[in-house]
């Protein structure tokens, strides 16, 4: 983050702490897509992801007074969103991918145009097929490391897990996904 961005962020944070709703609107507009993407990838449900965005932003607003400057605003928002997603993942039974999801998945894998923008429905099927066998913790670690591209230190800050736990969850997650791909007929060589 550039120094000027830092100054803007600090100013926005201070204003939000003082109850400035206009400043908070900026926070919502800046981070709602990030939270939506994360929740979409974790919960595999568009409507639930929207609910998580709302709940996260309201929690951020209510608890701005307890925000610690040592953590970046982005990571703090990630932390709140992850906790909400984790609660939802724990309470709902894992959803097995449907045959049509697997069909979308095979189309996606065999698509030569790797840059093609997927529709939400297709994206959902691909993610669901890939991560359906993972536990909530494995899913969170996998999404943060491989899909959100965060480093281990940041994942630790966000999830509260130590490096060893992150590594073990990631190892099992990758192994499970590899086995899932093998079952679907995609070995190491594709």
């Amino acid at each position: 983050m550039t120094p000027s961005m830092n100054i803007i962020n600090n100013d926005i944070i201070e204003r939000c702490r003082c109850g400035d709703q206009a400043a908070f609107r900026w926070v919502v507009q800046t981070y709602q897509q990030m939270v939506f993407t994360l929740a979409f990838r974790l919960l595999c449900d568009e409507e639930e992801a929207k609910d998580v965005v709302q709940e996260t932003m309201i929690k951020v607003w209510v608890n701005f007074a307890s925000y610690n400057h040592r953590q970046s605003l982005r990571n703090w928002i990630y932390t709140i969103a992850i906790r909400l997603c984790f609660d939802r993942l724990k309470s709902k039974a894992s959803v097995e991918p449907l045959p049509e999801d697997e069909e979308y998945f095979s189309q996606y894998v065999s698509d030569s145009d790797t840059e093609r923008e997927l529709e939400n429905r297709e994206l959902l099927s691909v993610i669901k097929t890939l991560v359906s066998q993972l536990s909530p913790k494995q899913r969170i670690v996998f999404a943060l490391v491989h899909l959100e591209n965060l480093d281990t230190e940041e994942v630790g800050q966000i999830t509260g897990m130590d490096a060893a736990k992150i590594k073990s969850n990631l190892y099992v997650a990758r192994k499970t996904i590899r086995e899932q791909l093998k079952q679907l007929g995609y070995g190491k060589d594709g």
């Binding site: 709703q21 609107r25 507009q29 709602q32 568009e46 965005v53 709302q54 309201i58 939400n120 994206l123």
Partner: peptide, 21 residues
């Protein structure tokens, strides 16, 4: 994923903001 009606979602959040702690 595409967040449809992003402005409507922002508005919905802003309207429902409770009292800050």
């Amino acid at each position: 994923p595409v967040l449809k009606d992003a402005d409507a979602l922002t508005e919905c959040i802003m309207v429902n903001l409770p009292q800050q702690k």
